[in-house]
Amino acid sequence: MEVGQMQRRLAEFTKSMFMEGFLDGQFLQLQQLQDESNPDFVVEVVSLFFQDSEKLLNDLTLALDQQNVDFKRVDAHVHQLKGSSSSIGAQRVKNACVVFRNFCEEQNLEGCMGCLQQVKQEFYLVKNKFDTLFTLEQQIVAAGGSIPAMEITSF
C-alpha cells in the first residue's frame, strides 16, 4: 500500500473511532501533548491505560467473586477505571463505568456482574481499535510518511 493511501486509511479509521463513540475530545488533548520532544506520548499513555485497566478488571473479577462482596471496594476499582478511561478519552469504557458505579451504590450484585462484562467488552473493543490505529501509524512512519494531523475538531 502506498503512503498516501495508508494516510487516508488512518484518517478514516480515526474518524470512525470518534463517530462510533470510542473516543471523545480528551483524546485530542493527548495528541496536543505529543511533540518532537515527546513523539511517543500518546502510545505511552494509552499503553499505561491498557496495563492499568487489565489489572483493575482482574481485581474487579476477584472482588465480585467473593462470598461477601465488598461493594465499596468494587466501587473504588470502578472509580479508578472510570478516571483513567476518561483521561485518555475512551468514552465508551467510561460510560460503562458510570452505570457500573450506580449498581455498586445500590449493592446490586447481578447488576454489577452484568456491568463487569459490559466494561470488559468495551475495554477489549477499544483496545483492538487502538492496536489497529497504532499499527497503521507505525506502517506509515516505516514507509517514510508522516502522521497527518487530526482534522476533527467538532468532538
Binding site: 501533548l33 511533540d35 515527546n38 499513555v45 499505561l48 492499568d52 478516571g83 483521561s87
Partner: peptide, 15 residues
Amino acid sequence: DSLVDRKLIERLLKI
C-alpha cells in the same frame, strides 16, 4: 495515585 493521570498531568505541566 493513578499512573495514567500522573503521566498526563506531568506532561501537561512540562509542556
